[in-house]
Amino acid sequence: MRLRGKTAIVTGGASGFGAGIARKFVAEGAKVMIADINAEAADAMASEIGGLSFGCNMAMSDDVIALSEATLKAMGQIDILVNNAGVTHLPQAMEDVTEDDFDRVIAVNAKSVFLTAKYIIPHMKSRETGCVLNVASTAGVSPRPRLSWYNASKGWMITATRSMAVELAPLGIRVNAINPVAGETPLLKSFMGEDTPEIREKFLSTIPLGRFSTPEDMGSAACFLCSEEASMITGVCMEIDGGRCI
């Protein structure tokens, strides 16, 4: 029960890595608000694990404000913020990515972090305590070809994590990130372009441990970094990648 008494927001928490993090947090004693653009899926996940849910678009300021207000009304405080909501574009030459797809990737992967910093972190500042976890990617460390703008958005998140950590440390707020390798989530097919045994084998060949990451892997790492066991850790971007970035 490493998170007993803590409250947390997990964005993109209805599926994939976010769902794995939300499940682990509840299992470790936290009260969790699952924020997701798919409100129906968020409701279902909240019912399954015993959490709360809120349907919202994390790239829209009004939605993030409403999420913050709803969480504070329901829970009284926000101890942990997990910025997990994310999207990608299909693998293709950088110049072939449409402007709409580029804008969507930057809005969800980057602007959402700006908006939670603007509308949720002030609450943490007022209490002089809190923990932020950004879900970045190995793509921001060791980019794969034909995913240029997704790679760039995750590189942005890694730099943002370090900058936020330096700025917020004197206020008692820790900021870290996890860098997952490709995993068994709804985004996997988008990363690969198409899901075939041959393409899976090509991806797996780049991961020394020989398997994709799982939501459970991310939940375990997130729980550690957001617990008091990691009270001296801030500004870290931890690869959860089976050795891919070695």
Results as ranks from 00 to 15, higher is better:
A177R: 05
I78V: 15
I21W: 10
R4A: 09
D36P: 04
T234L: 05
I233R: 06
C223T: 13
D96Y: 04
R244W: 14
G172C: 07
I120N: 08
P180L: 11
A46Y: 12
P91N: 02
A35H: 00
A46H: 06
I120A: 01
L168R: 04
L3P: 02
I121Y: 09
C223M: 11
I78P: 13
N179R: 02
K111A: 06
D217P: 00
V175W: 10
F224N: 08
A14P: 11
N38V: 06
A30V: 07
I80K: 02
S153M: 05
A165C: 11
G20N: 03
G51S: 08
W156H: 08
I178T: 10
A39E: 14
G12A: 01
N151P: 09
R104D: 08
C245K: 13
M124E: 09
I106K: 07
L52W: 12
L52I: 05
A110V: 13
A46L: 01
G242T: 06
A93P: 01
A169E: 10
V82D: 00
E48G: 10
V236H: 11
A160W: 11
I178F: 03
T234P: 07
N179C: 13
F224E: 05
L147W: 11
S153E: 02
I246D: 05
N176V: 14
V181H: 06
P91R: 11
K73V: 00
T129L: 01
I120P: 08
T234R: 10
S205D: 12
A39L: 02
R23F: 13
K6C: 12
L188H: 02
K111F: 09
I233G: 03
A117N: 15
F224R: 07
V113I: 15
M232C: 01
A182Y: 12
L171E: 12
K6G: 03
P170Y: 01
G5M: 13
F102Y: 15
L67V: 00
E198K: 13
S148P: 01
